[in-house]
Lab assay of single mutants.
Amino acid sequence: MTFKAIINGKTLKGETTTEAVDAATAEKVFKQYFNDNGLDGEWTYDDATKTFTVTE
């Protein structure tokens, strides 16, 4: 399945996608990506659209 992340950061904005077997796996991938890029913020997840949003 394809999962999307919308990034609303102070220094980084945009979208990225990942292929994962479930939402928990996708969340781990996205959180690692955000940690690697120095992002920290509020997380939400919309199961209907398979979209994570992080707002810094």
Rank of each mutant, 00 (worst) to 15 (best):
T2C: 14
T2Y: 07
T2Q: 11
F3V: 01
F3I: 01
K4S: 05
K4L: 07
K4E: 03
K4V: 09
K4I: 13
A5N: 02
A5C: 15
A5E: 03
I6A: 03
I6F: 05
I6H: 05
I6D: 03
I7K: 00
I7Y: 15
I7H: 14
N8Y: 13
N8M: 11
G9T: 14
G9Q: 06
K10H: 13
K10F: 13
L12M: 13
L12Y: 14
K13E: 07
K13P: 05
G14A: 12
E15S: 09
E15M: 11
E15K: 04
T16L: 15
T17R: 07
T17A: 06
T17W: 14
T17L: 09
T18W: 12
T18M: 09
T18D: 01
T18S: 04
E19F: 15
E19H: 13
E19V: 15
E19D: 10
A20I: 01
V21K: 13
V21R: 09
V21D: 09
V21A: 11
D22G: 03
D22K: 01
A23C: 09
A24S: 09
A24C: 12
A24E: 10
A24G: 07
A24N: 07
A24I: 09
T25S: 12
T25G: 07
T25I: 07
A26R: 00
A26T: 00
A26N: 00
A26G: 00
E27D: 01
E27S: 05
E27R: 07
E27K: 08
K28N: 07
K28I: 10
K28Q: 13
V29N: 08
V29Q: 13
V29R: 05
F30Q: 00
F30E: 01
K31G: 02
K31H: 06
K31A: 06
K31T: 04
K31Q: 08
K31P: 00
Q32M: 09
Q32D: 06
Q32G: 05
Q32P: 01
Q32V: 08
Y33I: 06
Y33C: 10
Y33K: 05
F34L: 10
F34A: 14
F34C: 14
N35W: 14
N35V: 11
D36K: 10
D36H: 08
N37G: 06
N37A: 13
N37R: 14
N37Q: 14
G38A: 06
G38H: 09
G38P: 03
L39H: 04
L39K: 04
L39S: 04
L39I: 14
L39V: 13
D40A: 12
G41N: 07
E42R: 07
E42G: 06
E42Q: 10
W43I: 07
W43C: 03
T44Q: 08
T44L: 08
T44S: 12
Y45P: 00
Y45F: 05
D46V: 03
D46W: 02
D46Y: 03
D47E: 14
A48C: 07
T49W: 03
T49M: 06
T49K: 06
K50F: 11
K50W: 05
K50G: 04
K50Y: 07
T51R: 01
T51A: 02
T51H: 01
T51M: 03
T51F: 01
F52N: 00
F52R: 00
F52H: 00
T53K: 04
T53G: 02
T53M: 11
T53F: 13
E56Y: 11
E56L: 15
E56R: 03
